[in-house]
């Protein structure tokens, strides 16, 4: 009886300690988000190859269904494509003239345009749908040159950015994750805004510059290149609800169809990590007047997608 009581007491204490430790871990994670990065990488390396084998037959079935659909819908699509092609030809001629003008203007103004660098073309192995965090796993990792914070671009548009890497696998933060914020531009009006994930199929358009100009359903959004991670001009989505606040955006590319994606280097190189230590604390006016050597707060460069 006494022993039972002691055991119950010990187990209660252990349970309490464990829960307290969990909360402590959360606080540590808040201060240092990179904690546990390596362990996650190891688990990624373990899980991804297994799923890439398991999903192979399902991919085969999916391709077969696609093929059947292609076969039966071919005539309709051909007619539609011919119509689109005629419109595209006209657009192309205008674009060629614009491109020529742009080249001349750039030569005059000596604009330096950063190059987009392809690092790897990989396939999306799996996207977790069992968690509040929306991520996908791809079958290439640090051994292929992939680092956290690189844009992931599918054939139809932007997919997301890399979050963590293992040796042979990496995790991609999808656009629909609540932590994802993509600087975009409305193509028709040229306004910049943020496409923010909310854990639903559509994104929200927030912080639009010039909110008094109305959006229209069907307005296309492309990346603006602000923040330096995503290269400009990559399709992000289409406005599907313009009147509400915030407007809703349907992503151009979903990881469902995007079997293969490109992982590129961050568009503009991020500032070096070993910048001199600075403080953001306000310096008293007296200290400045006295001529004491005070650390100067450097301009803080916030990455596009914190």
């Amino acid at each position: 009886m006494r022993r039972d009581q002691n055991l119950a007491l010990v187990s209660a204490v252990v349970s309490g300690a464990v829960i307290a430790f969990g909360l402590l871990l959360l606080l540590i994670g808040r201060v240092n988000p990179d904690a546990g990065q390596r362990m996650r990488g190891v688990l990624l390396d373990l899980v991804t190859p297994a799923w890439s084998v398991v999903r192979a037959p399902f991919d085969g079935v999916g391709r077969a269904i696609d093929w059947g659909g292609d076969y039966f819908g071919a005539v309709d699509r051909n007619r539609r494509l011919e119509g689109e092609l005629a419109a595209a030809h006209a657009e192309l001629q205008r674009a060629a003239a614009d491109r020529l003008a742009l080249v001349q203007l750039k030569r005059v103004a000596r604009v330096r345009v950063p190059e987009r660098t392809l690092i790897a073309t990989v396939r999306i192995v799996s996207a977790t749908s069992g968690s509040v965090v929306r991520t996908a796993m791809v079958s290439a990792g640090s051994s292929d040159g992939i680092k956290p914070g690189q844009p992931v671009i599918g054939a139809a548009g932007l997919i997301g950015r890399t979050l963590e890497t293992g040796i042979g696998a990496a995790r991609v933060l999808l656009l629909t994750d609540p932590a994802s914020r993509v600087p975009v531009m409305v193509v028709r009006t040229g306004q910049s805004a943020l496409a923010v994930g909310v854990n639903t199929p559509s994104l929200e358009l927030q912080d639009r510059v010039g909110a008094d100009v109305p959006l229209r359903v069907g307005d296309r959004l492309v990346t603006s290149g602000d923040g330096g991670v995503y290269p400009p001009g990559v399709p992000v989505g289409t406005i599907i609800r313009a009147d509400g606040d915030p407007a809703l955006v349907r992503p151009a590319a979903t990881p469902v169809g995007a079997a293969f994606v490109n992982i590129e280097a961050a568009w503009l190189p991020l500032p070096a990590a070993d910048t001199p230590a600075t403080t953001l604390a306000p310096v008293p006016i007296e200290a400045r007047r006295s001529g004491a050597k005070v650390p100067v707060a450097a301009p803080v460069i916030v990455p596009a997608n914190p």
């Binding site: 799996s126 996207a127 977790t128 749908s129 069992g130 968690s131 999808l174 639903t200 990881p255």
Partner: peptide
């Protein structure tokens, strides 16, 4: 838990909390 990482490509968290 490992089953929960299955490639169910849906844009929402719908996979059950196994």
């Amino acid at each position: 838990l490992l089953l929960m990482t299955a490639p169910v490509l849906l844009p929402m968290p719908v996979f059950p909390q196994l």
